[in-house]
Design a protein around this nucleic acid. Structure first.
Lengths: 340, 340
DNA sequence: GCTGATGTTGGAACCGGTTCCAATATCGCA
DNA sequence: TGCGATATTGGAACCGGTTCCAACATCAGC
């Protein structure tokens, strides 16, 4: 009557319980579980029936230990401070859902200490089978550790010569943004970007260089007084923009190194009573989800797609398919909306 | 000279290697690793030195198997479709970073099939030590499975009588939103909300009920023709709002069941050439990050805080501290901005 | 010098899978 | 009938930790 044998009522059945009840060896049960062809049809059926009857579920922990694989991949990123990371994460989650039966382990890093912790604790083939690192640059030492542990890793939005990576041409992006403003007739263009961080996240600086290049191309001399840097964030960008707008000769357009910062600029314009784009044009960078609803003109980089692509590269690397660490460039487009 | 003994160059040192080199038993090494007081100072030092010398790192996989704990907690939620979930996730990540050394495993569910998969694969004390379920209602059967497996679970933004949960009073929220609009002098109030989903996510409907209650309280008869429901999403809400605004007698205010939908309503107003709030007042629900930058009036529920609180309850439940499954109500506030 | 309490230790057994090896059964073919 | 090749099988050994138990040392107290 009772499908569950009394003796195993208290603890979950193991592979040995199944073997005993099905009157086969543990090896055979394991082979059935792993769809090995080396099992007779008869034994296979008996094992399957016993599994159903006992309600057996195999322990992924034991399996991991035995196999040396965890079927998990780790994502290291600053989820709090970078909106773009969440957008990329969506791409990661989506890709992983369809492709491959890996689970996702999150590791948030905001400070230097956390960065170190993350790499120390993750940098072992033990907890995860591979690492996706987004918007945080690992040190040479950390990369060396990964290599020594044999833990595959892929970078997104950040570069290291020893690892496969997906990046954008930040300089080009800065140039594109600036040329867009130049085409609209602006010549006094301000810049609001990031302070250099201890993470070595310097895309903001490269975008500014792109801006300088575009200005040079247009025969306009770079004016350092129109460039403001602050820690990344909406509030900070707003403060920068307010100072920029209170200059004796304020810019007629501002290039913000990220959409989050562009939003801060928009807030400064609003509180200063400036009309956008008539009195002040604003262009951002990234094209996060908010940009569309705000009507923010921006340089679009494919966030979801790069997240998804990172997963593809990582899965390939885990399977040992990856060749040399290559750098992939994601395409950039200026999306013109209502702020320019 | 060489700190790494030749014999162990190929594979990572194990606890037995450490024991051998330190000339102690494996038990002693394990005790040192776990800060047991039952170790002499002398042995402790020898073991620590050996660990440093060999570069030993303990395998969390083996530890998990032996301990029957994984030090991971799972989060099940629709990360794609619900913006509010990402906001809550930030609270989860933040809390988990400070408190307790648990890693976070993500499980995205968007469809019914995925929901079933998620619970089937997670509903075992095997991969995770506890489950945080956000904005997805588990079925009775799934809850029963969790109970049988002894896997602690906490719900956020969704209710089941058998599990501890953090929810809001949606009816009250709907009432608050509507009363805010009534106080502004509106009497023709439209509603844009969710279609009932197979997930049993019915907060939209309860918010509408709260609206009906407020209207009743003000002596206004409910008008079903002003209520539109569609699958959750900005575009869908925009379509609903456009139909609402093209009625012969269009509403002067719209209550949207979520901020995402409110944004759709704003877009409809913009494309219809309506000024907000002069021609159309809009109030949303949730107070996601975008709401602030858009100046959207909304009913605020503490998203981050509830995520964080969910973690607290879950950790308590894992430690066996949790008593009866209780329901916690998060506070609601109307945040008045520029759309009303 | 004996007793019992206390402190410390080594190592076997265990967690629950996978894999390899040796053993047996079956079969085709000379 | 005998042989090797092939199919299938059981189970020991292993993955790398933790824990329990028995054993031994030390010491206070009588």
């Amino acid at each position: 009557m009772d499908p569950v044998p009394p003796k195993s009522r208290d603890r979950a059945p193991t592979i040995r319980d199944v073997a005993r009840h099905a009157k086969v060896g543990v090896g055979t049960v394991s082979r059935v579980l792993n769809d090995s062809p080396l099992v007779s049809e008869d034994a296979r059926q008996r094992v399957h029936q016993t599994i159903d009857r006992l309600g057996y579920r195999r322990s992924s922990m034991a399996r991991s230990l035995s196999l040396g694989r965890t079927q998990m991949i780790g994502v290291v990123a600053p989820f709090f401070t970078r909106n773009s990371v969440l957008e990329r994460l969506r791409g990661v989650v989506g890709k992983l859902r369809d492709h491959g039966d890996y689970d996702l382990v999150l590791f948030d890093v905001e400070t230097l200490t956390q960065r170190d912790d993350a790499f120390r604790s993750f940098a072992r083939a033990d907890r995860v089978d591979g690492l996706l690192v987004m918007s945080v640059r690992p040190t040479d030492e950390e990369v060396e550790n990964l290599r020594r542990e044999g833990l595959p890793a892929v970078l997104v939005d950040v570069a290291h010569p020893a690892l496969p990576r997906i990046v954008i041409d930040d300089v080009l992006g800065g140039t594109m943004a600036t040329e867009h403003l130049l085409a609209k007739g602006h010549t006094l263009i301000g810049f609001v970007g990031d302070e250099p961080t201890p993470f070595g996240f310097t895309s903001s600086e490269r975008r500014r260089q792109g801006m300088a290049r575009a200005l040079r191309g247009a025969g306009i001399k770079r004016n350092g007084a129109l460039e403001f840097r602050a820690p990344h964030g909406r509030e900070e960008a707003r403060a920068s923009a307010e100072r920029l707008l209170s200059l004796p000769e304020p810019p007629t357009a501002i290039f913000a190194a990220s959409d989050v910062q562009a939003i801060g600029v928009l807030e400064a314009a609003r509180s200063g009573g400036l009309r956008v784009p008539e009195d002040l044009a604003v262009i951002g960078f990234d094209d996060v989800e908010v940009a569309e609803v705000l009507g923010l003109t921006t340089v679009r980089q494919p966030l979801r797609e790069t997240g998804a692509r990172g997963v593809e590269l990582l899965l390939a690397a885990i399977d040992g398919v990856g060749g040399d660490p290559t750098e992939e460039l994601a395409p950039l487009t200026v999306i013109e909306r209502r702020t320019t």
